[in-house]
Simulated scan of single mutants.
Amino acid sequence: MNKKEIKGIIEGILYIWGDPLSVSSLKEILEIDKNDIKNIMNEMIIEFNSNDRGLQIVKIKDGYQLATRPIHYEYIKKLIPKKSNKGLSNAALESLSIISYKQPITRVEIENIRGVKSDKSITTLIEKGLVEEQGRLDRTGKPIIYGTTDNFLKHFGFKDINELPKLKDEDLEENNTD
């Protein structure tokens, strides 16, 4: 297979799959070296961007996904039926912020930071696929620990959790080390 054929296959696979597809999965499908796949993906990202195409390839963690460009949102949203699916409440947003910055974290730790019960907001975040249970701590009561999902990264446009904006308190701590 030549590189042009491989790019065509990858484009078709990403289109059909819909979700991020890992380099390992692409390696298994295409039966070529991971480094070759990474190089081809980087080339494809550049090609999609330089040709002002309606679609782009976005990197999410170690995977790639075909997506529409945000600048076309106003046009695309006209095709999508309006949902009564409302956004997140302030309580859910607070909990999501705490989880995203402090993960892995327990419900009790979230409640200690917020100062109020957080059961309902955590349940909402799980139902929306933004947060997931990531296991249990090995201590009394075996509390569940929570963390964000790949859907969280996708929804907010992050490649990985390290792209979260720095908190002001962290910036102040860094300034105190001078």
Rank of each mutant, 00 (worst) to 15 (best):
G18R: 01
D19W: 06
D19R: 09
D19Y: 12
D19G: 09
D19L: 08
P20C: 03
P20V: 03
P20S: 03
P20Y: 12
L21I: 14
S22G: 06
S24V: 02
S24N: 04
S24Q: 09
S25D: 13
S25V: 06
S25F: 07
L26S: 08
L26W: 06
K27C: 11
E28M: 08
E28V: 05
I29N: 01
I29W: 02
I29E: 04
L30C: 02
E31I: 08
E31R: 10
E31K: 13
I32Y: 12
I32V: 13
I32N: 15
D33K: 12
D33A: 15
K34P: 12
K34V: 01
N35G: 15
N35M: 10
D36T: 09
I37E: 01
I37C: 03
I37K: 02
I37R: 00
K38S: 11
K38H: 06
I40Y: 09
I40N: 01
M41R: 00
M41Y: 00
M41T: 00
N42Y: 15
M44W: 00
I45L: 05
I45Y: 02
I46H: 14
E47I: 09
F48Y: 15
F48R: 02
F48W: 07
N49V: 00
N49W: 03
N49H: 07
N49D: 09
S50T: 10
S50W: 04
N51I: 11
D52L: 13
D52K: 15
D52C: 09
R53C: 07
G54S: 06
G54A: 06
L55G: 09
L55H: 10
L55V: 15
Q56M: 10
I57G: 01
I57D: 00
V58H: 10
V58A: 10
V58W: 14
V58P: 02
K59E: 14
K59R: 14
K59A: 14
I60R: 01
I60Y: 00
I60S: 05
I60H: 02
K61Y: 15
K61N: 15
D62P: 01
D62H: 05
D62C: 04
G63Q: 03
Y64F: 14
Q65I: 12
Q65V: 12
Q65E: 13
Q65R: 14
Q65H: 11
L66T: 03
L66F: 09
A67D: 14
A67S: 09
T68K: 12
T68S: 13
T68E: 08
P70Q: 08
P70I: 11
P70F: 04
I71E: 13
I71G: 07
H72F: 08
E74V: 05
K78R: 13
K78E: 11
K78G: 04
L79F: 15
L79T: 14
I80K: 03
P81S: 01
P81N: 06
